[in-house]
Design a protein around this nucleic acid. Structure first.
Lengths: 154, 154
DNA sequence: ACTCGAAGCATGTATATACACCTAATTCGC
DNA sequence: GCGAATTAGGTGTATATACATGCTTCGAGT
């Protein structure tokens, strides 16, 4: 494994495409995001927005920090992503008892939009599952879960 | 599967966290990107930049469109990502015989930076592989490959 | 050689992501 | 209670990503 770093032979180079977890996860994320975005388009939601709305519906009201942990997103990223949803009237962000905190909740409108988007999400999901098969899908999701744990554990 | 879209019960909601390929791939991509970025920091390269440089080294000179296909990236995204590498002097983008095309090649400096970054990438990669084990890593990568194919095939 | 559709790219705009740094509110040690 | 450390969050800046649109160049057909 510990070869001379001065030698950058093609065997070494090919690793990026064949074995790099980051590169391949990013490629897969781009590919699936485009697919889901495409299916979700009639709803006006992007993939990220759909999942954020769904988490808000399931776990809300919830603080920014909790939401960031759940979604493995930087708090500051979340702030900006949620601002977009708030401007659309799909969520509200209110101060909690602890006045440092911000509680995120889905609105009536947000719920309506979300409900309308569910069948679109199901279609995208079905497209993927039919291509992979349920078993491989499950083991893939399990692998993703493990790699998230491992990446966050430092 | 085809339940009433008006009913957004919690069973349905939980699907996003448990089964959504897009959501979980994006979460995993964020997690691993942070890990690799962290390891790569001394090199001055981000994960995306590292992989782009490596592909340029392996496949270059190559046109934007080809590079976009290989990396499953929008051509227009690639244009901006490569501009950053070009400004750093790590690659050059030159017109080809066909003057519509742009050929991307790694520079001497780019190669030096890349070579310096390889051990850092190896450390990040090792961290992940040690956590998962080689077998699970392989099956995960295989799954990613399949999901990319399925996502792009529409 | 001329035209026209196709191929290859760039730009405008919007969203997504993260780090460094900053402010405000809370909690803890005394 | 008071001050320091901690916690929750926002802003500035940079990168990453994609769609709609428009421009240039090429090749095929006449």
């Amino acid at each position: 494994m510990a070869t001379d770093p001065k030698i950058l032979d093609s065997v070494r180079c090919k690793e990026i495409g064949r074995s790099c977890a980051c590169y391949n996860l990013r490629r897969a994320a781009r590919a699936t995001t485009r697919l889901y975005d495409d299916f979700l388009r009639p709803s006006g939601l992007r993939s990220t927005q759909y999942s954020m709305l769904m988490v808000a519906r399931l776990r809300g009201p919830v603080t920014l920090t909790k939401l960031a942990e759940m979604t493995v997103t930087e708090r500051t990223t979340l702030t900006r992503n949620l601002t977009i949803l708030e401007k659309k009237g799909l969520i509200v962000i209110e101060p909690g008892k602890d006045r440092r905190e911000r509680q995120v909740s889905i609105t009536e409108l947000g719920l309506e939009v979300l409900i309308a988007a569910v069948p679109l999400w199901e279609a995208a999901q079905a497209h993927i599952e039919q291509g992979l098969g349920g078993d491989r899908m499950d083991s893939l999701l399990k692998g993703l879960s493990e790699i998230i744990s491992r990446s966050c554990d430092r």
